[in-house]
Simulated assay, not measured.
Amino acid sequence: MTLFQQELLAGWGAPSASGAFSRLAPLPKVCLVLGFLILTVSFGRRAWCGCTLFAVVPYLLARAGGVSPVVLLRRASLALPFVLCAGAANLFFDREPVAVGAGLTLPGGVVSFWVLIAKTLAATGMVLLLAAVTSISGISGALVRLRVPCILILQIQLLCRYLLLTAEEARNLCNACLLRNPGCRIVPVRDWGTLCGRLFLRSVERANAVYRAMQCRLFHAGEPLPPGDTGTAGEWCGVGALLLVFVFLRWSLA
């Protein structure tokens, strides 16, 4: 279990990933997430009601998966600064009034801006929820079942592994820097360049050591990856029913 999964499962009284959503096989969960993402991005730029409802869905499913919705929302909100920079121009250029209720109208820029935020919270929250309740090997096995190219799945596995290594090395460098400067609470800006260069060299060295260890265990990139569990008929019925509900909400709230 990764540190990210431990944090999500530890918050606000969530004992473990033992909910109904967590017990699903990886393949039905991946198909559910893919269907949800497609329906989420298919909303128009003025469909504020449907996007708002879809933005709540991942955090409702989080409770069913034994995950803290508060921690999940905090993690998903890290993507909002990028969205704010991309959609802030709508507030100034789109002045067309849009009816949002009985006798209430708002500028189109405000509505489209909220739709963009809601889509971000919905998509990011659902992907993070999948990562919290499913191991990377389970997701990889589901992608094999979906006929995703093996080289792409392998890149995803190695990326997840090496990102953790880079984060660990960054934490060690920051701790070492602060221990050598007891009066500093943060790393001084003048040391950022040196630390980034050192982080790159240590990450490459650590990654090479990991790859050599994998080769010693007879790892070969050309070998096909094992497929994951397909899930039971009951799981597929539940996922299919949930997707039908999402489709109905998508077309009724468009």
Rank of each mutant, 00 (worst) to 15 (best):
W48N: 06
C49E: 14
C49W: 14
G50S: 03
C51T: 13
C51G: 07
T52C: 12
L53R: 07
F54M: 07
A55T: 02
V56D: 00
P58C: 14
L60A: 15
L61A: 10
R63W: 07
R63I: 07
A64L: 15
A64E: 05
G65I: 10
G65F: 11
G65L: 12
V67P: 03
V67T: 11
P69H: 04
P69I: 01
L73S: 12
R74T: 01
R74Y: 06
R75K: 12
R75C: 04
S77T: 04
A79S: 02
L80E: 03
L80W: 02
L80F: 00
L80T: 02
C85E: 12
C85W: 04
A86P: 03
G87L: 11
A89E: 11
A89C: 12
A89I: 11
A89P: 09
N90M: 13
F92M: 11
F92Y: 11
F92H: 10
F93P: 12
F93W: 15
P97G: 03
V98Q: 13
A99H: 10
A99C: 12
A99W: 11
A99V: 15
V100G: 11
A102K: 15
A102C: 00
A102E: 14
G103R: 04
T105F: 12
T105E: 15
L106Y: 01
P107G: 01
P107A: 03
P107N: 00
G109R: 00
G109H: 05
S112E: 01
S112F: 02
W114M: 14
W114V: 12
V115F: 03
I117C: 13
I117K: 10
I117L: 15
K119M: 05
T120H: 08
A123G: 08
A123E: 01
T124W: 05
T124Q: 01
G125H: 09
G125Y: 03
V127S: 09
A132H: 09
V133A: 03
V133I: 08
S135N: 01
S135D: 08
I136D: 14
I136H: 09
I136K: 13
G138A: 08
G138Y: 09
G138R: 06
I139L: 08
I139V: 14
G141H: 11
G141C: 09
G141E: 09
A142T: 06
L143V: 03
R145T: 07
R147D: 00
R147G: 00
R147N: 06
V148T: 06
P149T: 04
P149G: 08
C150V: 13
I151Q: 04
I153N: 02
I153C: 02
I153F: 00
I153P: 07
I156P: 06
I156V: 08
Q157I: 14
L158T: 11
L163N: 13
L164H: 01
L165Y: 10
L165V: 15
E168H: 14
E169Y: 04
E169P: 10
L173R: 09
L178D: 10
L178V: 05
L179Q: 15
R180E: 15
N181S: 15
N181P: 05
P182A: 06
P182L: 13
G183L: 15
I186M: 06
P188V: 06
P188H: 05
